[in-house]
Simulated scan of single mutants.
Amino acid sequence: MVLVVGLGLAAIGLHGRFPDPRDFLGAFTGANYWWVALAAALQVVSLAAFAGQQRQILRAFGVRVSAGYAMAVTLARTAISISMPVGSAVSAGYAGRQYLRTGASKETTAASLIVSGLASIGGLALLYLVGAAALLTRDPHLLAGAQPLAVVGGLIVLTAAAAVGGRRLMRRPAGPSRPRSDGRAAAWFRRLLSSAREAWQAGAALRAREWIVGALYYAVNWLTDLLCLVATCHAVGLPVGLTTLAGIYLGVQIVRQVPLTPGGVGVIDTALVAGLTAAGATTATAAAAVVVYRLISCWLLLPAGGAAALWLRRDPAPVAP
């Protein structure tokens, strides 16, 4: 079903822009495999940065896990995220279950997932800001059309406000608990709010250094994924500059956050091909570059994540020495 939906969306988005099959196969088979190998290595670094960020956040909460265990969880949850509807939420739940195996409490697990999500926004925002600064140094007139920067700045302000608010909430003494005779649904909702408050407080209690390091890990995660796309474009000889590719990539990330299909199948592919052809690439080379990029960053991760999930089920000692 995922494949059919993805192909259908791709067909709609690329209607009238399909490359000639012979041109596509020529561009695909004629790719420079040294560039393809570099793209694969960059994707490994991207995954390793994600795993390192997970270890760093858990370590900040007093939970130690091995590098291999963190990498296995990263591969497994990535495979879940790109293969299931609303995959990000399902993969977060899977990661939470794995963290509980390490001895982390439910509150610590929830806090680590919240901090990780906010750090991901911070890392992407950092890339946006650095890229915008690089563009503005070349053409200051672009500042007039920099509305996306306001959105990025707003996300940073909201993240900082959540951390500051959580710290202030920690300083307030807890009020006396009173017995209540609410119904089962009300009691469940009250427990949920209490758990959310504890997770918020735990995340806000982290030092600024932990937040900064987490955001930097994610910046490396996003940057190396971008460079993976750059390498695949070089592999097929696509004449698109780095600045243009960065703009296309960062624009596609907005589309990527809307879970229309698992892993953005059909949606991301269409957006990338459309962006590359608009930048001057031929349809055949653009399609070949996107196919190579998606093979490395998406489809090959499915069997790798499945193998990692099997290993996690058999691993008896997830905690690092």
Rank of each mutant, 00 (worst) to 15 (best):
Gly26Leu: 05
Val236Ser: 02
Val267Lys: 04
Ala72His: 08
Pro259Asp: 00
Val5Phe: 14
Val292Lys: 01
Gln257Asn: 08
Thr29Ser: 07
Ile114Gly: 04
Ala146Lys: 10
Pro140Gln: 08
Ala162Glu: 05
Ser177Lys: 15
Leu126Ser: 11
Val152Gly: 09
Gly263Gln: 05
Leu113Val: 08
Ala92Asn: 06
Gly13Gln: 09
Gly175Arg: 13
Ala95Phe: 05
Gly87Gln: 00
Thr102Cys: 08
Leu229Glu: 04
Gly6Met: 05
Val292Phe: 05
Leu223Asn: 09
Gly280Asn: 07
Arg256Ala: 10
Ala278Trp: 12
Thr243Cys: 03
Thr244His: 01
Val290Ile: 11
Tyr217Arg: 03
Ser46Arg: 08
Gly214Arg: 00
Asp269His: 06
Arg197Asn: 15
Ala41Lys: 07
Asp269Thr: 03
Arg171Phe: 02
Tyr94Pro: 11
Gly96Cys: 06
Trp299Gln: 11
Ser177His: 13
Glu107Trp: 03
Thr78Gln: 02
Thr283Cys: 07
Thr137Ser: 11
Arg168Asn: 06
Val5Ile: 11
Leu206Asn: 06
Ala132Lys: 06
Thr283Glu: 03
Gly122Thr: 01
Ala160Leu: 15
Ala27Gly: 12
Cys228Asp: 01
Leu3Asn: 12
Ser116Val: 07
Leu129Pro: 09
Leu38Ala: 13
Ile121Met: 07
Tyr33Ile: 12
Leu42Lys: 02
Pro321His: 03
Ile80Thr: 12
Pro176Arg: 15
Ser177Met: 10
Gly280Tyr: 08
Leu192His: 11
Leu272Trp: 04
Thr243Arg: 09
